[in-house]
Amino acid sequence: MARQLIFDDQQTFLQQLEQLLADGIAGEHLEVRTPYHLSEVEALLGQQPSKLPFFALGGALAGFGGGFLLAALTSLDWPIITGGKPIVAVPPFLLIGYLMTILIGSLASFGGFLLLARLPRIDALVEEQDFDAHFIITIADEVAPCTTPS
């Protein structure tokens, strides 16, 4: 069975977490839930920095290229001169590319977040929880670390 430790206070929680890790319990066997983001927890558990920026970068590049190409190719598809501008009018199309950079970049970051944070999580939708009021450390059982903590 998994063991659960519940704290009301950030200080004691961090001390206890540090203690547990010092006692030799591997970080992977701990599940930590906090009401807000604590960079100290990340540092203690030795987590890798999030891979999310790669999603953002990928989305941004795809958006920029896609936006510019969308404007350029559709203009070439029906090449009619309007407003005395070239068919592929670079400055305005850069603008479309720029807006799509931000749009696809943000949406890709959001998608990447759902993927990395494993959301939506069906089991958590039904679970009774009050992580958002307390600091909780769940220590998974050494024998069967894969079971869902209850």
């Binding site: 501008k85 400055p91 603008l95």
Partner: peptide, 12 residues
Amino acid sequence: FFAQFLLIWYAN
């Protein structure tokens, strides 16, 4: 820079 350039370019 773009905001300035675009308007000059566009109005021509």
